[in-house]
Design a protein around this nucleic acid. Structure first.
Length: 265
DNA sequence: AGAAAGATGCCCT
DNA sequence: GGGCATCTTTCTT
């Protein structure tokens, strides 16, 4: 492993290990330009404490959304009931519901009146993996319901063959690497939904917090990659997606494909 | 009032 | 690689 480090093949440095070595990120960490904050959140840990238990994920992929100058931002068209949190104090969570079934979590940056935020796109579970797997496999909403309804296909048959306790099995794809690989998966694994919208992640007593090793300034630039944001139409040329190079928990990149506007006939 | 697209994930072919 | 599930906002009649 030492040789791997020398060759630069270990994407995630070791310094983010161990809960005792992490402390709360101060609000000033978020009150900076969003293009500065976004890459600086890689390597930080988002944790959510609920009655069910604690799940924490190290952030490995993010996207920056600027305010009213960014056509891909929810804040582009001005303040609404949904995006109001983006216009408030930095260091709060902006959680929104999308595609009729998914939640995504952002962290508000910059200052009041500058509605910038960082979308957390993927993480690597570092605590509470068992609970995360249960949430991803069983409490999944429409996706999980489809899995159950689709039993009798190859996947369902394999699950049944695996044992009588098949009902407790996580979904097929919910292996460790995939637990928080993608913005909606991250929310599902950590149990984040609209209840957490507006939560102050800088509050030491909060259930949802962001932590990092003492004095953390961000991962070295040498392990960070950048590229265009996923799934955005307007503003697709801005390389405001940041990820930890080579990390297996980074979501799969799908370039935006414009839909055909009308049938050929 | 109605429609269309969306910062998605899942299963199936 | 494509379709589907299904809600919220925003823009168009």
């Amino acid at each position: 492993m030492t040789s791997a480090v020398r060759r630069g093949e270990l994407p995630v440095p070791e310094h983010a290990r161990g809960p005792s070595r992490r402390e709360l990120l101060p609000r000033g960490y978020f009150g900076r330009p969003v293009l500065t904050v976004a890459p600086a959140l890689l390597g930080c840990v988002l944790e959510h404490r609920t009655q069910e238990g604690l799940v924490a994920a190290e952030i490995v992929e993010v996207e920056a959304y600027r305010g009213q100058s960014d056509p891909a931002s929810h804040a582009f068209r001005g303040k609404t009931a949904r995006n109001a949190v983006m216009f408030g104090e930095p260091g709060h969570a902006y959680v929104y519901f999308t595609y009729g079934m998914h939640f995504c979590v952002n962290l508000v940056c910059q200052g009041p009146g500058e509605p910038a935020a960082v979308l957390l796109r993927a993480g690597r579970i570092v605590e509470g993996e068992e609970l995360a797997a249960v949430r991803r496999g069983a409490a999944g909403g429409a996706g999980a319901a489809t899995v159950r309804a689709g039993e009798g296909s190859a996947g369902g048959a394999a699950a049944l063959r695996a044992g009588e306790g098949a009902a407790a099995l996580p979904a097929r794809g919910a292996i460790a690497r995939d637990l928080a690989r993608g913005p909606a998966r991250l929310c599902q694994a950590l149990g984040i939904d609209r209840v957490q919208n507006g939560a102050d992640v800088c509050d030491p007593a909060a259930a949802l917090r962001v932590l990092a090793p003492p004095g953390f300034r961000g991962l070295p630039a040498s392990v960070i990659s950048t590229g265009p944001r996923v799934g955005v139409r307007l503003g697709a040329e801005d390389p405001w997606r940041y990820w930890v190079t080579g990390d297996p928990a980074v979501s799969v990149y799908r370039p935006h494909v414009p839909k055909r506007r009308a049938p050929l006939a």
